Simulated scan of single mutants.
Amino acid sequence: MSTGIVKSKLDVIEDAASCKAPAEVLIVLLPGAYDTPADFVKQGFVRALRERQIAADLVIADTHMGYYPEGLVVQRLHDDIVAPARKKGYRQIWMTGISLGGYGSLLYAKEHGADIDGMFLMAPFLGNRSLIAEIAKTGLADWKVGDIPAADYDRLLWSWIKGYSDPVYAGKPDRPPLYIGYGTEDRFAGSNQIIAKVLPAERVTTTDGGHEWQPWQRLWASFLDRSVLPRCE
């Protein structure tokens, strides 16, 4: 379990692709609230990536709950991982995450969407239940955003997510392609479905199970099996 201590620079686990040529794609993987980068290794996420010979380097960041107040997670991801990766010459950067890590991926994309090339969210936490219930009544496309107080971070985020329901905005360079997956018995399935309903069917994956590692492993494998990421030559 993460300690909650916020450091000036993110702790990470890095894993490089074993292709002949240097990888031009970087995957950034963010953990859930009480998970660590080591948990992803233990649960086979790195192994699944390498078994498929995907030509992408991997960074698993320790973005625990201490980084989320005041949006510090966005600053640290940008300064410690994404901006340096662009300077190194990566042509694509994907933001991926489980539960709270999915929320963090969205927060980052909201502020720096043009700096990443795609997102894959696994059973993402999406904010307070009353807001989600409000959006569910009309559906995301018809939801009236209204005036948003500056401190209402969840509503601000959902107002940005709403753009994926409008094809005019969904294809903009600052709104990277969004993929989502979740277990059908997951406690966040309802909120995840709100997003899933406005995405192309090929960007949505579901599996049996709840908010636990086995469904997430299947979702990760399914995403890796798509033709979205390049393979080693």
Rank of each mutant, 00 (worst) to 15 (best):
M1E: 12
I5F: 09
K7A: 11
K7N: 11
K9T: 12
D11E: 15
V12P: 05
I13G: 11
E14Q: 14
E14F: 13
D15A: 14
D15H: 14
A16N: 15
C19Q: 14
K20I: 06
A23K: 01
A23H: 02
E24D: 14
I27E: 02
L29W: 05
L30N: 02
G32V: 07
D35G: 12
P37Q: 07
G44T: 15
R47F: 12
A48P: 04
L49P: 01
R52C: 04
R52Y: 05
A56G: 08
D57G: 08
V59L: 05
I60Q: 02
M65I: 14
M65T: 12
E70G: 10
E70C: 11
L72R: 09
V74P: 08
Q75F: 04
R76T: 01
L77G: 04
H78S: 07
A83E: 13
K88I: 11
K88S: 10
Q92N: 08
I93T: 01
I93A: 00
G97N: 06
I98Q: 02
S99W: 10
L100A: 05
G101H: 01
K110Q: 12
H112S: 03
D117N: 15
G118L: 02
M119W: 05
M119R: 08
M119V: 11
F120N: 07
A123R: 08
A123M: 14
F125R: 01
F125D: 01
L126A: 11
G127A: 09
N128T: 15
R129S: 08
S130A: 15
S130G: 08
S130I: 15
A133E: 14
A133M: 11
E134Q: 10
E134R: 04
E134T: 12
K137L: 04
L140W: 00
L140I: 00
V145I: 15
D147Q: 08
I148H: 00
I148D: 01
P149Q: 03
A151C: 07
R155P: 06
L156H: 10
L157S: 06
W158G: 03
W158T: 03
S159A: 07
W160G: 00
Y164H: 01
S165H: 03
V168N: 09
G171C: 13
R175F: 14
P176D: 10
P176L: 05
Y182D: 04
G183E: 02
G183I: 05
E185C: 14
D186M: 07
A189N: 09
Q193L: 09
K197G: 13
K197Y: 15
V198C: 04
V204A: 12
T205H: 14
T206Y: 07
T207Y: 12
G209Q: 10
E212T: 14
Q214T: 08
P215N: 09
Q217Y: 00
R218L: 05
L219I: 13
A221T: 05
